[in-house]
Amino acid sequence: EEERTFTNEEEARKAKKEAEKRGLRVTVTKDGTTWRVRIG
Rank of each mutant, 00 (worst) to 15 (best):
E1I: 15
E1N: 09
E1D: 12
E1G: 12
E2L: 13
E2Y: 15
E3V: 13
R4H: 13
T5R: 07
T5K: 05
T5N: 06
F6G: 00
F6N: 00
T7E: 11
T7P: 09
T7F: 11
N8H: 06
N8K: 06
E9D: 03
E9F: 13
E10Y: 12
E11C: 08
E11R: 03
E11Y: 04
E11F: 04
E11S: 06
E11A: 09
A12E: 00
A12R: 00
A12Y: 05
R13H: 12
K14G: 07
K14D: 10
K14M: 12
K14Y: 10
K14T: 10
A15G: 02
A15D: 02
A15E: 04
K16H: 07
K17T: 12
K17H: 14
K17R: 13
K17L: 14
E18N: 06
E18T: 05
A19R: 01
A19D: 02
A19N: 03
E20V: 06
E20I: 07
E20R: 04
E20Q: 08
K21F: 09
K21Q: 12
K21Y: 08
R22V: 07
G23Q: 02
G23E: 01
G23Y: 03
G23F: 03
L24V: 05
L24T: 02
L24I: 05
L24N: 04
R25W: 10
V26R: 00
V26H: 00
V26G: 03
T27V: 09
T27I: 10
V28K: 00
V28D: 00
T29G: 02
T29L: 09
K30A: 07
K30N: 10
K30H: 13
K30F: 15
K30M: 08
D31R: 05
D31I: 13
D31L: 08
D31E: 12
D31H: 09
G32H: 03
T34V: 15
T34Y: 12
W35T: 02
W35A: 01
R36V: 15
R36N: 06
R36H: 10
R36P: 03
V37F: 03
R38M: 11
R38Y: 12
R38D: 06
R38G: 04
R38A: 10
I39R: 02
G40D: 13
G40Q: 14
G40K: 11
